[in-house]
Design a protein around this nucleic acid. Structure first.
Lengths: 122, 122
DNA sequence: ATATCATTCAACTGATCGGATGAATGAAGA
DNA sequence: TCTTCATTCATCCGATCAGTTGAATGATAT
């Protein structure tokens, strides 16, 4: 009944760190080298390389080696699955609220049209 | 430029664990007691209480105490923010793809103004 | 007051995280 | 060959995570 928890685990974990989200945003705009990705951050190059590994483990990013440089590119698929989970959850909730709203409206409608007497109209 | 990273961090972290996602799905359907939430899991009650704390820290869940029972209820707001981040990211990506597609179409049109009509059949 | 119940708090463990540092790899250029 | 460059590997650190067990809390019923 569970829908492949592992993938979601890795994706959400990868998205849980601001540095990784920033890296992802950057690599999404264009395929980048590791050094290039590390440049805006105050942490070591190795730390960035590790963050990229976490993104890679979740499948959000792919590495390609050319010449002496490693190119990192974006892969949107795991993001789709994460979005699907959240949307499924949210839509269930809003549906629940809509149902409640409809119920309240129905009660309201039943109460207001001068049917305020004791015996309920049937 | 950054939109309150901390909230997203906590939300994504909370969603990164399958037990917590399951708890959230359950508590979303109805407000539940801790013991009730713990029942389907093979871990200790304390472990579940901790998971609930993680959800609570992210604001995904609220605790209310009545009588000797603690009732846990769902709060959708942090989920909205997580969904917004992912959607923003995905929409950027698809827009990028659309632009690329348009570019390719334009090139195609420029390269073959009229000779295209029976040239390729694939 | 005491017992009971639902839950949390406190302390501990092993695993993983986020980070630093220094050595190793692998490929190109001299 | 030897050097240089981009990056990873290996190791260590302190912090947090996920889990356990046992004691403490807080409210009610006896």
């Amino acid at each position: 009944m569970n829908e492949e928890t592992g993938i979601l685990d890795l994706t959400m974990t990868a998205l849980a760190h601001p540095t990784r989200r920033a890296i992802l945003q950057r690599v999404m705009r264009r395929e980048s080298r590791v050094t290039e990705l590390a440049e805006p951050f105050a942490i070591s190059l190795n730390a960035v390389s590790k963050h990229i590994s976490v993104l890679e483990r979740a499948g959000l990013v792919r590495r390609r080696r050319a010449w002496r440089e490693h190119w990192v590119s974006f892969n949107p698929v795991p993001l789709d699955e994460a979005a699907a989970w959240i949307e499924k959850t949210r839509s269930f909730w809003t549906a629940r609220l809509d149902a409640l709203d409809a119920l309240l409206k129905a009660e309201d409608a039943a109460a207001s049209p001068q049917s305020q007497r004791k015996g309920r109209r049937t």
